[in-house]
Design a binder for these strands. Structure first.
Ligand SMILES: NC(=O)c1ccc[n+]([C@@H]2O[C@H](COP(=O)([O-])OP(=O)(O)OC[C@H]3O[C@@H](n4cnc5c(N)ncnc54)[C@H](O)[C@@H]3O)[C@@H](O)[C@H]2O)c1
Ligand SMILES: NC(=O)c1ccc[n+]([C@@H]2O[C@H](COP(=O)([O-])OP(=O)(O)OC[C@H]3O[C@@H](n4cnc5c(N)ncnc54)[C@H](O)[C@@H]3O)[C@@H](O)[C@H]2O)c1
Lengths: 206, 206
DNA sequence: TGGGACTTGTTAAATGATTAACAGCGCAAA
DNA sequence: TTTGCGCTGTTAATCATTTAACAAGTCCCA
């Protein structure tokens, strides 16, 4: 199947979580407008996304919740699962480890890295923290393909280089600076300072 | 001045930070392609954004760094400054308080809220934590206009209702569920689980 | 003094994403 | 049966954003 639009992928992740809540409540079918209400989007957007992934609902009954969950899983998840590491186990890095550890079966945080001797050797929720010098080695040993980057701004670019060199295929950057990666490495940048300033602008202008 | 496009606002925040680093290095002028390189975008996008805010550079010299910083400040910041609160002072909420407290002068975190008796009454980086029942009262007393929502998924919708009722004008939601707010309240949703699943999808497909 | 290399500002085209419109089917009620 | 409503699937239109194209101004140097 060919690549889906970014926004559709984001919504698929959200559909799945909403659907899992429905499934837990024994709800077996759902209409596009119900799913739309859960995400606060329009029903036609839901139908369009579902069309893009090649699924069909039942006319006048809606979509079969469990079937749709499975299909989204086939699209979003890797069969074998992917391993993730957190680089920079400060306040944000620790919050992420605590939150994600054990949450999803097909996506597991297996290592943390830092350069602070006080942190190296510790475990956070059973995730071991290694020195950043060993990143390349551990990435290969543990078959890690995604890195979450939560180091200070000043060193983010350099550490990102190390990560890319280690062969990682996706980086999620929370440092408030734009980093540069080769075309074949996925990069998601989430700048919380920008998010806050953006909110302030629209509040001011409203 | 009329409302700028969302993406332009995001980049303005990033231009400003990049420019402040330049200013600290005594760099007085900057070309569109230099600024573009810092953000890993195209020079024409930089020029277009700068056109939208009505600034003009000097031909063959580029943009005056300090002037541009000032102008972006006039656009993004509120003159009097805006007050911000964090609702749900768990792992993520505490990381945000520690990070943002004192960072920007025109945007200050002045209060935290929680419903856990062990947290109420504490201070985090001198930011006092109040019971969530007093949200409405404190929001008025402290003139808070933006809330960062970091409570568990299960209660996010309900707490968001409380926040809106208190008269807050912007919400930044980090809970992994979509919330609903009136049209005149700005809403930014940042779902880290989705970010991670999205990265996994594009790594898998690459 | 004139040509060439650069850089900005702006308009126009292309791309990407959302929304509108509607055909078609299925069920329910008459 | 037939009528009509409600829902899906899909195409077409709209809207937002990025990218391309280029005119015009400036500087440098021959
Ligand atoms: N905490 C937040 O809520 C927040 C908000 C916005 C942005 N950020 C950004 O996220 C990043 C992390 O924030 P934080 O609050 O967790 O900071 P932090 O200082 O608590 O953590 C940074 C961690 O990175 C480690 N580190 C430093 N240099 C390193 C290197 N070269 N290699 C490996 N590890 C290294 C430090 O030892 C520390 O453990 C920063 O870039 C920050 O700007 C954080
Ligand atoms: N920690 C992360 O890195 C991370 C990642 C992705 C998503 N999130 C989301 O962010 C939110 C916060 O995550 P966290 O890790 O900080 O969780 P947490 O459990 O550490 O913190 C939640 C806080 O909210 C408080 N709370 C609970 N009910 C409340 C109520 N009704 N009113 C006010 N406060 C209340 C709790 O007392 C606690 O202090 C969650 O929705 C989580 O799904 C967090």
């Amino acid at each position: 199947m060919k690549m889906l639009p970014e926004k559709t992928v984001e919504r698929l992740s959200q559909y799945r979580r909403a659907l899992m809540l429905c499934s837990a409540k024994e709800k077996q079918h759902i209409y596009s407008h119900e799913l739309a209400n859960l995400l606060h989007i329009t029903p036609v957007q839901v139908r369009r996304d579902i069309m893009l992934i090649g699924y069909s609902g039942t006319l006048r009954k809606g979509y079969a919740v469990d079937e749709l969950i499975d299909l989204i899983g086939k699209i979003l998840d890797s069969e074998e699962g992917l391993n993730v590491c957190v680089v920079g186990i400060g306040n944000l890095g620790r919050a992420l480890v605590k939150y994600f550890k054990g949450k999803r079966t097909r996506l597991s945080i297996v290592a943390a890295f830092d350069n602070n001797p006080e942190k190296i050797g510790n475990e956070y929720k059973k995730v071991p923290c290694y020195p950043v010098d060993q990143l390349s080695k551990i990435v290969k040993e543990e078959d890690i393909s995604i890195a979450i980057l939560t180091v200070p701004r000043q060193v983010a670019a350099q550490v990102a280089g190390t990560i890319v060199d280690a062969g990682i295929k996706g980086i999620i950057n929370y440092a408030p600076i734009s980093i540069n990666v080769p075309d074949d490495v996925y990069l998601g940048e989430y700048d919380m300072t920008t998010s806050l300033e953006k909110a302030a602008y629209f509040v001011k202008m409203s």
